[in-house]
Design a protein around this nucleic acid. Structure first.
Lengths: 336, 336
DNA sequence: TGAAGAGAGCGAAACGTTTCGCGATTGAGG
DNA sequence: CCTCAATCGCGAAACGTTTCGCTCTCTTCA
């Protein structure tokens, strides 16, 4: 059907080897260059990627494994990653595992079986054995956003602890003493770190940590909604709240709107992640901004280097800084 | 490095052909089956996809080309598509073209060159020539959400016209006479259809269409914000507004919040697409709900059939129905 | 003028599968 | 006991590249 390199060779009156050499950037006589270009154009020849891959054992494809394709944080990262990789001729095989550890393994195995040249992943599990399929096949990989304990592995993430610290500290400085936090799932690294930031501020400022103000969520909108409602139902509700991811921030704001809680008069709010969120609610929400673009690009760059067998600095641990975007949603606590 | 089918053959004391046959579902003697299973397990043999693809000329990969990886509508569809395809052993090569017609062509060519078995795309351009690379290589493809004029092509979309009609009609029935619409980009099919629904209602109810109430947007948040603001600045602002996609709805609500416009007392609002949006704002927003999951699944199913050379009903045009989710954001117009 | 060396082209052997056609084995039926 | 058919296994030829090592042709310089 489609023209092969053989056809090009015949058409140009040269050997296959010469065509291949030229196609891969080798030098040929000017006259032959013209001949080949002509033949390629006339036959509409495209190299057959499978055949090439079979010989070179490179597929020019990288896998991207994320917990959720419907989380804006994840897809923004994917988008930036894809942009960088594509410049270098790589395609991205995107999979989400829907926050399910079993599916995570399944899809990881799936990707590993597909002869990808490298993998970027946001792991859910914390078990170094999870990465075994990659090691077994010697597939370079870079973790994003979450480390996997005890695994030597390049990792790009943000300084969640200090991100959280800065947010909570700001609330404390404003005079808040009862600060609620809606934290992420237990065992998830980002969630633990963000909680640590919270407690560390309390330690550093000699404030008691009240268990009841620390609420568990699973990073879902409904958790934000439910836990925010629960906090408001307390005999003495907090005067400020820190919500530790986008979806839960969404939920928390829903709960606040529903009850006509005034921000920041009744409650100061700091959320996480999403820009558009800041201005959707009134007043504009203060948020912790993650350097999403930089994360994606850095992860892609790092993976590219590893795929080039550049092992410099392995394992890299890149901990990026967040930014605290302060807006009108934070004020001093209401004087009782 | 990794074990090949040859190693398995040697280890099991059988021929390559037999191993291959068994691996592909063929029948072998029970005794041999055991031997092969054993060898496969012991050598940790995995078939080499590239070699297989080279022989079968199927890559078990489908491309997915969308305008934007950061639009929830697009990624939700991708997620559902991926889910179905994966069940059948296919991977998805996801690309976004960032709403850029040049990049659209580039990425389409990129995907076509990568020996994909099929392609799903949400086109921006309306030029049948756009799909040429696919036809040239005989790659089955299904369009999602937007048709390409004059191209024989399976297409899965929603009945945008009647979706819009239902929303606007509801506003009319509530008594509204000055209804604003923030429409999408000119030339984009969904946008034109949604506008048609709007004008058709006006025709059917003998209402004048006021040019000034029809606002142009490019489906971006800032357009929703800007055009909503402009509408509010009119000498006689509309009493109801229909916003025709998610991002612009977001923007419009921002503008409304900023100016303390009461919903629905001052203005009735119907938005588009996003569930979480409905309850984030107060009161809950009425929206046009697209059957996102069904679109994704139908598109995937259709593509699967085409890749199986099942040409039944070609070209399919599947126009799905939307649902109008009515909530408190719509009421009768304020009596002046 | 001749030898050395650079540059270019070529043939052939891989890469790891699938598949075609043929030969061998087995079991049943006459 | 012979024949025939059905079943199963095998050898070998692809698939379309890349790449190794060789040959050939010029150029250049002693």
């Amino acid at each position: 059907m489609a023209a092969t390199i053989k056809d090009v060779a015949r058409h140009a009156g040269l050997s296959i080897a010469t065509i291949s050499k030229y196609l891969n950037g080798g030098h040929v006589l000017d006259a032959n260059r013209v001949l080949i270009d002509l033949a390629v154009a006339e036959l509409e020849f495209k190299v057959n990627g499978m055949a090439r891959s079979l010989k070179t054992s490179r597929t020019m494809t990288v896998g991207v494994l994320i917990p959720n394709l419907e989380s804006i944080f994840c897809t923004s990262i994917v988008s930036n990653v894809e942009n960088v990789l594509q410049e270098f001729g790589y395609s991205t095989l995107v999979c989400d595992y829907r926050q399910d550890p079993v599916m995570e393994r399944r899809k990881l195995a799936f990707l590993a079986d597909r002869q990808i040249d490298g993998l970027l992943m946001m792991p859910l599990g914390n078990d170094p054995e999870l990465l075994e399929p990659l090691r077994a096949r010697n597939i370079p990989h870079v973790l994003i956003d979450r480390p996997v304990a005890g695994s030597d592995c390049d990792t790009i993430l943000v300084d969640n602890l200090n991100a959280s610290y800065a947010a909570v500290e700001h609330l404390v400085v404003q005079g808040h003493r009862r600060i609620g936090i809606i934290r992420g799932p237990q065992g998830i690294h980002t969630a633990e770190e963000r909680l640590k930031g919270y407690t560390r501020v309390h330690e550093d400022y000699n404030l008691p940590v009240e268990k009841v103000l620390i609420r568990n969520g699973e990073y879902r909108t409904e958790d934000g909604y439910g836990q925010m409602s629960a906090l408001l139902d307390l005999d003495v509700p907090p005067t400020a709240i820190f919500v530790t991811n986008y979806e839960m921030t969404l939920g928390a704001v829903m709960a606040l709107n529903e009850r006509n809680v005034r921000i920041p008069e009744d409650l100061s709010v700091i959320g996480f992640d999403n820009h558009s969120l800041t201005s959707l609610v009134k007043p504009p929400l203060s948020i912790v901004v993650q350097p999403i673009r930089e994360i994606g690009e850095m992860a892609a760059q790092t993976l590219l280097r590893r795929m080039r067998d550049d092992r410099a600095g392995f394992p890299i641990l890149c901990r990026m800084k967040t930014q605290l975007l302060l807006q009108a949603s934070v004020g001093p606590p209401r004087t009782p």
